[in-house]
């Protein structure tokens, strides 16, 4: 495998009394599809949010594409980055939320072009053409002018994936992308994600879909109480887990 795109080293995070992450270390390599599984409250979503800095880490560090996130080393001390610098670092990641979070006052197409036009300063016509291409890719070209409220949950989530891809990120983060969907809509979102994985995109997916993890993931990481219990090849972790906690979790969800 190639160099790590994400290097997480000894990251801890506490919310008040609750320790969400306990000295977590993890590598994600270019083109890798990594699924994070575990019970709710195990820290997998927090870990994902730390990578695009919606949550800041308390200690430890995350390097994305060789660059330390949120901090700058100078004269043997660490300095916090400015909000502008953090915004620039965020452009390397695309985030897909559990509750879609599409902009309700903008059409599907406008949702996708918003970032490229407003943040990256790209030409409106170019951004529109690329957004249409992305909508075709997620199978929603006919819904370009629909508002989010006119779309089903599965359609909204596919637009949200297109919106994240429009920024041309090097890493896609998925935070339980199918948990808020009606069961019959899960498949359409997963198939878009499978296509994305096949195209070579590096992906970190927090999910409860063990079937998806088995089929698509290169690596599966099982987390419990803020720590990584077991990680390895998807077939090994899901097929022949070494740890008793992993076994009992898997037997509960399958």
């Amino acid at each position: 495998m190639t160099r790590p795109i994400v290097a997480i080293r000894s990251v801890s995070k506490t919310f008040g009394e609750f320790q969400a992450l306990k000295r977590v270390s993890l590598d994600v390599r270019e083109g890798e599809v990594l699924c994070l599984i575990g019970a709710s409250g195990s820290g997998k979503t927090t870990l994902l949010r730390c990578i695009n800095q919606l949550t800041s880490v308390d200690s430890g560090g995350i390097w994305l594409d060789g660059e330390l996130l949120g901090l700058r080393e100078q004269g043997g001390r660490l300095h916090r980055l400015t909000p502008q610098q953090i915004a620039r670092q965020r452009l390397k990641t695309g985030m897909v939320f559990q509750r879609f979070n599409l902009f309700p006052h903008k059409t599907a197409l406008e949702n996708i072009t918003e970032g490229p036009v407003q943040v990256q300063g790209r030409k409106r016509e170019d951004a529109r053409a690329e957004a249409m291409e992305l909508l075709r890719r997620v199978g929603l070209a006919a819904k370009a002018d629909a508002y989010p409220a006119q779309l089903s949950g599965g359609q909204q989530q596919r637009v949200a994936i297109a919106r994240a891809l429009a920024m041309k990120p090097m890493l896609m983060l998925f935070d339980e992308p199918t948990s808020a969907l009606d069961p019959e809509l899960v498949g359409e979102v997963l198939s878009v994600m499978k296509e994305l994985a096949r195209s070579g995109m590096t992906m970190m997916v927090v999910t409860h879909e063990v079937g998806f993890a088995r089929e698509v993931a290169d690596t599966v990481v099982y987390m419990d109480h803020g720590a990584i219990v077991e990680s390895g090849l998807a077939a090994d972790v899901l097929g022949a887990p070494r740890e008793a906690r992993t076994r009992s979790f898997l037997s509960a969800v399958i």
């Binding site: 919606l54 915004a87 985030m95 939320f97 979070n101 970032g115």
Partner: peptide
């Protein structure tokens, strides 16, 4: 306005004022 809207805006690289 839902807090998720602000997070989604941040996730596509927007600053606070934008």
């Amino acid at each position: 306005v839902d807090a998720g809207q602000y997070e989604a805006a941040q996730a596509i690289g927007m600053g606070r004022l934008r």
